[in-house]
Design a protein around this nucleic acid. Structure first.
Lengths: 207, 207
DNA sequence: AGAGTAACCGAACGATCGGTCGGGACAAGG
DNA sequence: CCTTGTCCCGACCGATCGTTCGGTTACTCT
């Protein structure tokens, strides 16, 4: 009845594997590396999972589930386009921070295997949905139209996705997810310069 | 006397290698892959370069030389901090576009070898120099101070560096380097929203 | 013509790759 | 007691890794 777990499950093993994948890169990580990090022999890993690629598939699935979940939330579906875009931007940052190792791995796949190509495909779908929001917001006159739409979408995602390259929750002065989300929304919508003071959030994460 | 070149040089071979590295990832690329792409045998590659890691070293060196070169240019050294920051931002985008495959490779190294760790170190140096500019500009009151300095620096670089993930110069409607640089500067300094109309460039690339 | 060399090749090196196999240790259930 | 199943192991598999080596071709220079 109790949740006692002394040995590995596919999930706990995944935690270890994803950590090593992110440190060394997926291709740069051997099953030997994983076995050392997990403290069990190489062959024992195959008792829990089918192989290296299944670990990758489980990891990127978790990341994608988190991201697509955002689009089903109510504030992402109703309201003005610019409000929905702000919400999705904020929530994407929060999910990215909450599921950091998994999203990190997702954002680094190169497309060498079927699993990786499938992950790239799903990512494109998500980006496309957000791009539609941005398009609507520009049509509403709420976002500037002098910067090309695709360019702006790419740069917005570039800013968000870059978080996985530097955010370290274990750091002493580490901001939490909502704080990082605030910074991203402020910068993305109002820029660095000291003029845009339009409030786009109070930091509570619930606009 | 003429520059006839029918065979490979270390430089032309590097072009091929960097292309494949970026497609498959450095660790995911074997010397066999390189030999197929270059059209010569695996062993012939060693006639031109010492090995796989030297190809990586040459590539990231070229990228780093381009980036650090920016900091020696006059507009990056004289004038107000915010002006210098704008200039460095614009030029970084331009160098990134001009040396796209090399910078792409640089931005993806994970630190598995000495060469990769050296590249990461140099990158940190460059980022630090730009962070200093941003700090000065905030002290001058030219940039907003309500977003934490380090956060803003990371996000600015995240936006810029993301370009390697989507910019494809061979695309039909591809923007050129100066146009992308304009979009980045507009977004970074004034944001997405329709209010900041402060001019930070006329698109000529020479502010 | 002969010597030298740049460019290339096929074959093979030891090491490591992801993955398989048969079996041992141990706890639970009868 | 014996069986059953979970969890793990060392030994090993064929394939592939980055690299080396001996040798061939073709061009340049004298």
């Amino acid at each position: 009845m109790s949740a006692r777990r002394d040995t590995y499950t596919p999930e706990t093993l995944l935690d270890v594997a994803v950590r090593v994948f992110n440190e060394r890169g997926y291709d740069g990580t051997s099953m030997e590396h994983l076995s050392k990090a997990a403290g069990i022999s190489k062959s024992s890993i195959y008792h829990h999972v089918a192989g290296k690629e299944e670990l990758l598939r489980r990891a990127v699935s978790r990341a994608l589930d988190g991201l697509f979940g955002i689009l089903t939330e109510e504030p992402a579906r109703v309201g003005s386009a610019v409000r929905r875009l702000e919400y999705v931007t904020r929530r994407t940052v929060e999910v990215l921070v909450a599921e950091l190792p998994y999203v990190t791995l997702l954002l680094r796949v190169r497309g060498n295997t079927d699993t990786e190509r499938w992950a790239l495909e799903r990512r494109r779908e998500f980006d496309h949905e957000v791009a539609e929001l941005l398009k609507e917001a520009v049509a509403d006159g709420d976002l500037r139209s002098d910067v090309e739409l695709r360019l702006a979408t790419r740069l917005l995602f570039g800013m968000i996705n870059s978080i996985v390259e530097w955010y370290r929750p274990e750091a002493r002065n580490a901001a939490n997810g909502a704080q990082v989300a605030d910074a991203v929304v402020q910068l993305a919508f109002s820029g660095l310069r000291t003029d845009g003071l339009s409030s786009v959030g109070d930091g509570s994460g619930t606009p």
